[in-house]
Amino acid sequence: MMRSDPGLYDYWPYENRPKISWPGNARVAFWVAPNIEFYELDPAVNPHRKPWPKPIPDVHGYATRDYGNRVGHMRLMQVLDKYNVRGSISLSTALCDHHPEIIEMCRERDWEFFSHGIYNTRYSYGMDEAQERSVIEAAMETILKHTGKPCAGYLAPALTHTERTMDLFAEAGGIYTCDLFHDDQPTPVSVRSGKKFISVPYSLEMNDTIVYVVNKIEPRRYSEMIKANFDRLYAEGANNPVVMCVPLHAYQVSHPHRLKAFEEALEYITGHSDVWVTTGREIAEHWIDQHYDEAVADIEQRVLSLGGAS
């Protein structure tokens, strides 16, 4: 039976929360998450979702994504290097086998790798618990094997979930999810094991694919949106620090008509003092270490005193 509420977190109003302290007393923890993805031309088909909108081979759809790997990542990497931003990669882990050159360039830069599933054309829908656990663990093992560092975060492949996704990822050793869009600060996420597991704000509103493809926003306007998003978070962060994430896809943002406008926004943000330019894992580890217990206590107290959904 379907649930009316995902049951992952309690209502926790923005006002009067305990204060976060980021390193260097930063107002905003800023992270950039390039998605490095592999889409299969002719994958096994999940009965709940077709891999491509057009008949296979969907040349246009496939080639659109492949552009990111052939052309886009190198361009984006150069821009991030210029502003000393280490990417937090949302990785289709099979790409370690297909395109190890890209992985090596990210490793050299000490970027973070987190799991985005094995392929972005394999969906979680319809998996039983053992199947989903197996693919979650396999993806994490690939990251450890190819990068030497354990995987801490998860963005489900193609944002496809089951009711058990968070439980299984936490049990496999993960500490944060990027799949929830309910907050501008990290929050605890309830998992059945009771492990300390959290949400680190990723963003759909700032996600280039959502912006360009779903909302059909012009490249220069995207840059203005990012700056406006930052300006408000930066102002509010003087009171209680927050997180800002810009998720990217090199097959979108790295096109020649888009990258310069995006770079202007990145230059603007990194030109501010009191911004902690960091990675998803560093935000998660810091917040769990410094703020998790306090947050849980505050939420419990407020749920008790305010009533309402839990």
Binding site: H98, M127, Q131
Partner: peptide, 16 residues
């Protein structure tokens, strides 16, 4: 509910 075992096979996973 579960998926067919073939959904977890990746015959073209490899370099390139």
């Amino acid at each position: 509910m579960s998926l067919d075992d073939r959904y977890f096979e990746y015959p073209r996973r490899g370099y390139g």
